[in-house]
Nucleic acid binder design. Structure first.
Length: 634
RNA sequence: GCUCCUAUAGUUUAAUGGUAAAACACAGCAAUGGUAAUGCUGAAAUUCAAGUUCGAUUCUCGGUAGGAGCACCA
């Protein structure tokens, strides 16, 4: 048989060989470094036997595929160790994830908490150091069922496999697990790992099922890589918006209002800047701006379908014996505004924007800083138009989103979410048409996107714009939702060119998504060091000595404030170094130090946040420079 | 909502079955010079409720809030 290698060389054998033997024939040192191998495009274990012509690539510990195998095998080692300490444990699934692995375990009455992880880690090291081989075995479905008959979760998984499926198992020391593989040749590779956290996780991701104990961990081939990763986790924690929000006095949360953020003066400055930018852009883009009430009669929510589909998340109250609900969305109010007038096709696309405060009763466990709150401001807009205008309008929107996100230097990716399995309103044919319109627009623009089946809103499919936070968690910010249902329910009409009444189509769209969440993302994105245009305090003026330099410092302060720059003066009787330190820890973009030289020559000595170098320019030049920077949104 | 963890001055941390230590911040006084912390003094806290106990901030239980996840996220 002939084995083709990636470099074009061929190995020729008379009889079957294991991949180890082949690697050894190339070089014994290669054999030592091989984790798995790719045979005819499929990744397999090193002790796989080849008996016919194949193309073969060895995968050593420096390649990404190997890391995944290491993580998977470490999950098995974790399971083996847990089984040893808790012999009655049953196992769910133990896959690799982006930064490591986890294993879901049913511990019965026992509880594992984070304090126990050290102990489990120690035991894992002990077991790994026995350097057990990891050996693949194959069972029929029937054999597998009897082999795992004590493991209810594995039985459930096996039962779902096809009857004639060849089922593989992996055995190491005293532990055998059902697994597709491939795995490391042996446990000796597992050295640099750490168990990170414990959490509950529903079996098969379904909240009707029992909750298993999930242990998260990570592992690398090299100690430096592990250390670097752990360091990265620490760094991410430092830019957590909850922590920075406190340090920089941006917002607060109170026990009296879980999930209802309070905006402090600094956060408010940031917020107003974002809202101002939003209003400016939308007026330029020919949007009309409105504001609809926070609270509206239940009858309205029945018409919109929210009462039937969204009631659990709505806050309600009674006014004069009538039931009212606080709006969880702005659209029904927007519908009423549309209906106030007769509309012509000539007005389309009609774009109506609203920064609307909505309230939603989110599950208590879902709340997370500004990322998941119970009241937030959506930068909403509803766009009314004819069906032929859909694709063009979506293209316009994607262009607008691109521009807005580029101002913040944010990367995003798009998901197309389609009709939910059961909670939806309207005809399936309408849904199909809507989904196609969204996809067509993206295709025409050459934008890549991922399809997210069943994740659409109950009233229509949507494009979601996803951004990543410092913990690498993904959050939805912008969204474009096609709605062919609400116009029906509210009996919206327009007059077409023949003078006939027609039904318009509608888009909901939000760009920031929620201003709260977007600010949370920005805090982490900039690590609290905001660009000048949106920094809560843009300039800190620091006189060297109040007796001699205060007058000129105040003059500078007043000039800055007169031009709308958010400037403050630090005239406390403190040492210069003290005041500078504070300006730096508060991450203020410009600190101005004013002493004799500056007073004499009418200059300012500025230092930009993040830089060491001091620059001297005339007061007026500084004013010009900073105004230009703010105007350019830098 | 579910699993696990946590709760001490405004903030970040320490300690204890006999009511608590510090740093920063704050206030008062003194000092006053060039790019990350001047000194002294002061005021300031055990999340709430129940239980065990002679005595609970500490142990147990419950509530509330926060965290890590899961589920949810129109």
């Amino acid at each position: 048989m002939i084995i083709k290698l990636p470099d074009g060389n061929e190995m020729i054998y008379e009889s079957e060989k294991s991949l180890f033997e082949v690697a050894n024939d190339i070089s014994p040192s290669l054999k030592k470094r091989c984790i798995v191998a790719e045979v005819n495009g499929k990744i397999v274990d090193m002790n796989t036997i080849v008996s016919e012509d194949v193309s073969l690539r060895f995968i050593t510990d420096s390649e990404p595929e190997a890391l995944e195998v290491l993580r998977h095998s470490t999950a098995h080692l974790l399971a083996e160790t847990v089984k040893k300490i808790y012999p009655h444990a049953h196992f769910g699934v133990g896959p690799t994830i982006e930064d490591g692995f986890y294993y879901d375990i049913d511990l019965g009455e026992d509880i594992i908490s984070e304090h126990d992880l050290k102990n489990i880690e120690r035991e894992m090291k002990k077991i790994a150091s026995q350097n057990s081989k990891i050996v693949r075995g194959v069972l029929s479905k029937e054999e597998a069922l009897s082999f795992f008959n004590d493991d209810p979760y594995k039985v459930e998984l096996i039962n779902e496999l096809p009857v004639d499926e060849e089922i593989s198992i992996y055995k190491q020391t005293h532990f055998t697990d059902l697994c597709r593989g491939p795995h490391l040749p042996g446990t000796k590779w597992i050295k640099h790992f750490k168990l990170l956290s414990v959490a509950g996780a529903y079996w098969r991701g379904n909240s009707d099922n029992i909750q298993l104990t999930r242990i998260y961990g990570t592992v690398f081939f090299k100690k430096e890589e592990l250390d670097e990763h752990l360091h990265l986790i620490e760094e991410r924690k430092k830019r957590d918006h909850r922590k920075l929000g406190k340090q920089l006095d941006l917002f607060m949360l109170s026990e009296y209002g879980p999930g209802f953020p309070f905006w402090l003066p600094n956060g408010m400055a940031l917020r107003r800047e974002l809202e101002g930018f939003w209003y400016d852009v939308h007026l330029k883009e020919n949007y009309k701006l409105i504001q609809t009430p926070i609270m509206l009669n239940k009858d309205l929510w029945e018409v919109s379908g929210h009462w039937a589909n969204y009631r659990e998340s709505m806050y309600t109250s009674t006014i004069d014996d009538h039931e009212f609900a606080i709006k969880p969305m702005n659209c029904p109010g927007g519908m009423l505004v549309y209906k106030r007038d007769i509309h012509s096709y000539k007005d389309f696309p009609l774009k109506i924007g609203e920064l609307g405060l909505v309230h939603r009763h989110e599950a208590s466990g879902a709340l997370a800083g500004l990322f998941r709150v119970r009241n937030f401001t959506q930068d909403d807009a509803h766009i009314f138009m004819t069906e032929d205008q859909i694709v063009q309008e979506i293209k316009e929107l994607v262009r607008l989103f691109d521009y807005m996100y580029s101002v913040f230097n944010l990367d995003y990716y798009i998901e197309l979410s389609t009709r939910p399995e059961d909670k939806y309103i309207g005809e399936i044919s309408t849904w199909d048409k809507s989904e196609k319109a969204l996809a067509d627009a993206l295709d025409e623009m050459g934008k890549e996107y991922k399809i997210n089946p069943g994740d659409g809103a109950f009233y229509g499919p949507k494009l979601d714009f996803k951004l990543r936070d410092s913990m690498k968690r993904i959050w939805q910010c912008g969204t474009i939702q096609l709605d062919m249902n609400l116009p029906e329910r509210f009996d919206l009409t327009y007059i077409d060119h023949n003078g006939e009444k027609k039904r318009p189509v509608m888009l909901h769209r939000a760009l920031y998504g929620s201003i709260e969440r977007f600010i949370g993302i920005l805090i982490e994105h900039y690590a609290g060091a905001f660009p000048t245009w949106m920094a809560p305090i843009q300039v800190k003026v620091i006189p060297v000595n109040n007796d001699y330099h205060l007058n000129f410092s105040v003059k500078i302060l007043n000039d800055l404030k007169a031009k709308g720059v958010r400037a403050e003066i630090d005239q406390r009787d403190e040492k210069l170094g003290y005041k500078i330190r504070e300006a730096q820890t508060k991450k203020i973009p410009y600190q101005l130090v004013i002493g004799d030289k500056e007073v004499e020559s009418k200059t300012v000595n500025y230092r930009r946040y993040g830089e060491q170098k001091q620059q001297v320019v005339s007061k007026n030049d500084f004013l010009r420079m900073i105004l230009e920077e703010i105007k350019a949104k830098r």
